[in-house]
Amino acid sequence: MDQMLEFLANNGNELLMKTWEHFYISLIAVLLGVIVAIPLGVALTRVPKLAGFIIGTVGVVQTFPSLAILAFFIPILGVGKVPAIAALFFYSMLPMLRNTYIGVKDVNKSLLEAGRGMGMSGLQRIRDVELPLAVPVIMAGVRVSTVYLIGWATLASFIGAGGLGDYIFNGLNLYRPDLIIAGAIPVTLMAMLTDLLLGRLERGATPKGIRDSQEAF
Rank of each mutant, 00 (worst) to 15 (best):
residue 11 N to S: 13
residue 46 R to A: 06
residue 205 A to F: 08
residue 154 T to V: 13
residue 195 D to T: 01
residue 15 L to N: 11
residue 72 F to R: 06
residue 55 I to G: 05
residue 185 I to E: 04
residue 90 F to K: 02
residue 172 L to G: 02
residue 12 G to D: 03
residue 46 R to Q: 10
residue 17 M to W: 09
residue 184 A to G: 00
residue 196 L to C: 09
residue 181 I to Y: 10
residue 154 T to G: 05
residue 13 N to G: 14
residue 139 M to W: 03
residue 40 L to H: 02
residue 185 I to N: 06
residue 156 A to N: 07
residue 185 I to M: 09
residue 150 I to K: 00
residue 16 L to Y: 02
residue 125 R to H: 10
residue 172 L to W: 02
residue 210 I to Y: 00
residue 170 N to L: 11
residue 90 F to E: 09
residue 76 I to E: 08
residue 104 V to Q: 15
residue 155 L to F: 04
residue 148 Y to I: 13
residue 105 K to C: 08
residue 53 F to C: 11
residue 208 K to Y: 03
residue 201 L to D: 06
residue 13 N to L: 13
residue 38 I to F: 12
residue 38 I to D: 11
residue 212 D to N: 13
residue 16 L to H: 06
residue 197 L to D: 07
residue 190 M to E: 08
residue 166 D to R: 06
residue 211 R to V: 02
residue 135 V to P: 06
residue 170 N to W: 13
residue 11 N to R: 14
residue 81 K to M: 13
residue 49 K to D: 09
residue 109 K to A: 11
residue 156 A to F: 02
residue 184 A to L: 03
residue 7 F to N: 07
residue 77 L to E: 10
residue 22 H to P: 03
residue 16 L to K: 01
residue 56 G to P: 02
residue 40 L to M: 10
residue 42 V to G: 07
residue 153 A to W: 00
residue 127 R to T: 11
residue 201 L to H: 10
residue 99 N to A: 14
residue 190 M to A: 09
residue 155 L to W: 00
residue 108 N to Y: 09
residue 169 F to L: 05
residue 83 P to K: 15
residue 11 N to P: 07
